[in-house]
Amino acid sequence: MIVAKRKPLGEIVEMLAPYQKITVIGCRSCVAICLAGGEKEVKMLVSALKIKNRKEGRKQQIDGFVVERQCEKEWVKEVEERILDSDVTLSMACSLGAQTIGDMYPKHLTFPGLNTGMFGVPEEQGVWSEKCIGCGNCIIHTTGGICPIARCAKSMLNGPCGGSANGKCEVNLEVDCAWVAIYDRLKLQNRLDLIENFTPAKDWSTSHSGGRRIYVREDAKLSQHQKKGKEAVQ
């Protein structure tokens, strides 16, 4: 899932200061799970902003609510009126949600309330760790199910490097060495021979370096005729 963190409140307050009518929109998907932009976080932010306004005697109308998935236009469309009725929308979703609203209503101001951080998993309550960088060419079937690109500080394909000591990484001694974890996992799976294999330099063309990536599934895509029919129904 996508893991994000709330921006510092001072930054949010400064961003919203010039506007009168503010809509704060959260998302019930990833950012609700990582406790950054779900229902409770939206309510707390709205309340905090109102307290700040109370302190400074500033008159702002602040409303907050949550949509199911802010990165999907169908869900955003349902709250269109409430978005356009405000001077500015503060998105408490990941950057995808904020950009979806921005793309749908380009004249309307949409600001990010969160800093989108990573693709991660909940390790335990209140702890999330990065497991994938979305390089577009997954190789974890050869590394015991552990991604060396995301989890090795140097993204090494043939590790471990000389900086690995006692299972820890030289970059940060609190971080586990990804290649020691890969070794242990392959040993557990009786596939240690894989660690001897040389992996050539990665083809990064599937990664972000080539600009925005667009995936298309032709069988799911609507034809012009189908799109017209759908629009007519709506």
């Binding site: 510092p8 409140l9 001072g10 307050v13 707390m44 905090a48 307290i51 700040k52 302190k55």
Partner: peptide, 8 residues
């Protein structure tokens, strides 16, 4: 912490 961040 939230209050402190907002200068309250």
């Amino acid at each position: 912490q939230m209050l402190a961040e907002m200068g309250i």
